[in-house]
Every structure is written in C-alpha cells, then in structure tokens.
C-alpha cells in the first residue's frame, strides 16, 4: 500500500474518501464459501439482512448473492436461511 508524504495528508490525517475500505479484499480471509441452491431459495433476503460484511445483494433474477471479494465465509447466511438453501463449502473443493 502507498502511504502519503506528510505534506499530502489531509488535515488531522482525516480520510476524505468515504467508504474506501471497499478496496480491501477481505474475501482472502475465507476458508469456506456459501453456495446457493436456487431451487430452494425463496428470495426472502434474510441472508443479506444478517450478513456482517454487508456484501450480499439482490441480482437481476432476484437471488441474493454474496460478493466474494468481501465474503469472509462466516456462514451466518447458511445458518439463518429459513429454507436451508445455502451450504458452506470448503474453499477449493
């Protein structure tokens, strides 16, 4: 990561680029990945409600899908899915 020279720091080292943490690929932390069974999914969106990464969003077909750039693989979505439509799978399997 490139850090600025002191002359280029904002006042008081403030950060003036809101939400730029979204650059960080926290998906690297993941050891398991959520896999959605579209047949079971009722598109209720509870997985998105309970995702602590705020990285599950509705796609064009109305399915809720995690952005794997951020998903840390905690597995809350799989546990909370009322239809058991999400399974956690070991990365690389």
């Amino acid at each position: 990561m490139q850090y600025p020279a002191w002359e280029d720091l904002e006042l008081g080292a403030a950060i003036t680029t809101p939400g730029n943490a979204s650059n960080l690929k926290t998906g690297d932390w993941r050891s398991s990945v959520p896999v959605l069974d579209e047949d079971k999914c009722v598109k209720c969106g509870l997985c998105a409600v309970y995702c602590p990464e705020f990285c599950i969003a509705e796609d064009e077909e109305g399915f809720y899908r995690p952005d794997l750039y951020y998903c840390k693989g905690c597995g809350i979505c799989a546990v909370e899915c009322p239809k058991e439509a999400i399974k956690m799978q070991r990365e690389g399997e």
Binding site: Y3, P4, A13, I15
Partner: peptide, 13 residues
C-alpha cells in the same frame, strides 16, 4: 472520517 487509526505507516507523518 476524522480521527482514524494512525497506523505505524502514518503516525509519524
């Protein structure tokens, strides 16, 4: 964001 964490790479600056 005012008062962010001053990581070692930036505290000195």
């Amino acid at each position: 964001t005012m008062g962010p964490v001053g990581v070692p790479e930036i505290y000195t600056e």
